[in-house]
Amino acid sequence: MAETQEEEFLDDIEQAEAEEEEINIEEISDEEAEIDTLRAERDAFQDKFMRALADAENARKRSEKDRREAENYGGSRLARDMLPVFDNMKRAVDSVTEDQKEIASALIEGVELTMRELLNVFQKHGVRMISPEVGDRFDPNEHEAMFEAPVPGTKAGEIIQVSAQGFMLHDRILRPAQVGVSSNTGS
């Protein structure tokens, strides 16, 4: 009987060890599953972090671009509104005869100085004049054809008259130069 009790006792120990081993395997499986879950969460958070970082960088670049454009082109409306002032001053200076220059030389000189100062201010702020000459080739990116006419001795597409200078603000057209263009098909 003692032997049977001993055998039962050994069987109980073996059964307990088997159950313990089973519990350990389940715990290990649970721990591995938890580790896998944590890794998946970590990867998801890392992905979200990288996307947020990329979004922040894109926003920074966009705001930098917007700032540069505002700095370069923010005054375009004012500059465009000042162009007729320049045109009127140029017309006034161009219309003065030699007799009038002698009589009102100080006034004319003052208008010319004001016109030059206006051009200096334009240049300081990135506005440059487009001054085509008669005989230049028509460029639709910088010129606006006000009329076409067949003029003897010219080629088609040549500028035959300049009505008004154009202006650019950095790399953008404020106003194209207004020109007349030859429509001759021969020379």
Score class of each variant (00 low, 15 high):
T185H: 06
A56R: 09
D43P: 01
D66M: 08
A104G: 03
M129D: 02
T154R: 10
Q178W: 03
G166K: 04
A33Y: 07
A2E: 14
K61S: 11
E19F: 06
M1S: 15
S63G: 00
L119C: 10
R137Q: 11
A104K: 04
D139L: 08
F147H: 10
V85K: 01
T154Y: 12
P176I: 02
M50Y: 13
A33K: 09
V127M: 03
A104S: 11
V127A: 03
P152H: 04
R175Q: 13
A18F: 06
L78S: 12
L78M: 13
L174E: 00
F167N: 05
D11Y: 08
E3L: 13
R172Q: 14
D12Q: 14
F122T: 00
G110P: 07
V181K: 05
M129E: 15
E142R: 15
Q15K: 11
D81Y: 05
R42L: 13
T185W: 03
A16I: 14
E22Q: 13
L169D: 07
K61G: 00
D30N: 09
E21K: 12
M146K: 09
S29F: 01
L119H: 07
V96R: 05
F86G: 01
P84E: 05
E14M: 13
D171A: 08
E32F: 03
L118I: 07
E98R: 10
R128T: 14
E21P: 00
I35K: 08
D66H: 03
R80H: 11
I108G: 00
D47G: 08
E3W: 10
V162F: 03
R77W: 06
E21V: 03
P132K: 04
A177P: 01
I130E: 04
L118S: 04
R67H: 11
A104F: 15
L118V: 08
Q46H: 08
E148M: 08
L78F: 12
E142N: 15
R42S: 05
N24V: 07
V127H: 04
V151T: 09
I103H: 12
P132G: 02
E20T: 11
M146V: 14
S182D: 06
I25A: 11
D55H: 09
V93G: 00
Q165R: 10
E57M: 04
A106S: 10
N141R: 15
A145F: 05
G166F: 01
M50D: 15
F167C: 03
R62P: 00
I25D: 06
R91E: 14
D30M: 01
L113G: 07
I160F: 02
P132R: 02
M89S: 02
